[in-house]
């Protein structure tokens, strides 16, 4: 059973609330202080993504966040009710692509397509022209263990992020 659960309407203003709660609960769970910044960013990206996905496909549905503490780990799951796999950029190994790969910013190569799009495109959207999936790609670079799955009833996507709080273990590479 989760230690703390939170459901919030799919509005950007609530993402900060989720961030504050996750930070407070992780502190209590004994997550090392150095991981606090990772947790803040990871929960923010996962919740902001879920808000966008719900607003596209199920604007009335809340975003569900569960914070679960075990003796040797701390897990945050963020579940949306949108189209499964929306804003998920899978990597070649079945995990998630990394942010730098997704953005494809090689100093010598031609600019990637998202970069050459005119700036005016950014006014309407929230992504700055970034390719979809950047939020999760950032998480991939931050979190010990990330797992992406379909919602239990077949609807939406669940992002599960785990930090180890006990003795060091080799993190398993999760599959999409």
């Amino acid at each position: 059973m989760p230690t703390v659960e939170l459901r919030f309407a799919a509005l950007n203003g609530h993402v900060r609330t989720a961030r504050m709660i996750a930070t407070a609960v992780s502190r209590r769970a004994g997550v090392p202080a150095g991981a606090a910044d990772e947790i803040k960013l990871a929960v923010t990206e996962a919740c902001a993504r879920a808000v966008r996905v719900n607003r596209r496909h199920a604007p009335q549905a809340p975003v569900h966040v569960a914070l679960t503490e075990t003796p040797d780990s701390f897990t945050i799951t963020v579940a949306d009710r949108g189209q499964t796999g929306d804003e998920v950029a899978p990597g070649p190994d079945g995990g998630l692509v990394t942010a730098s790969t997704l953005l494809d910013l090689e100093p010598d190569s031609a600019a990637p397509p998202w970069w050459s799009e005119p700036a005016e495109e950014d006014v309407a959207g929230d992504s700055g022209g970034f390719p979809p999936g950047l939020g999760l790609a950032l998480i991939e670079g931050l979190v010990d263990e990330v797992q992406i799955s379909r919602g239990a009833d077949g609807v939406g996507t669940v992002v599960a992020m785990t930090w180890h709080t006990g003795p060091a273990v080799e993190p398993a590479k999760p599959l999409l």
């Binding site: 960013l41 950014d122 992504s127 700055g128 022209g129 950047l134």
Partner: peptide, 16 residues
């Protein structure tokens, strides 16, 4: 605190 949306805004500014 800075998230990917913030990065996007800075990139948008740079493009402009």
């Amino acid at each position: 605190f800075l998230d990917s949306t913030g990065l996007g805004v800075l990139v948008g500014g740079l493009k402009r």
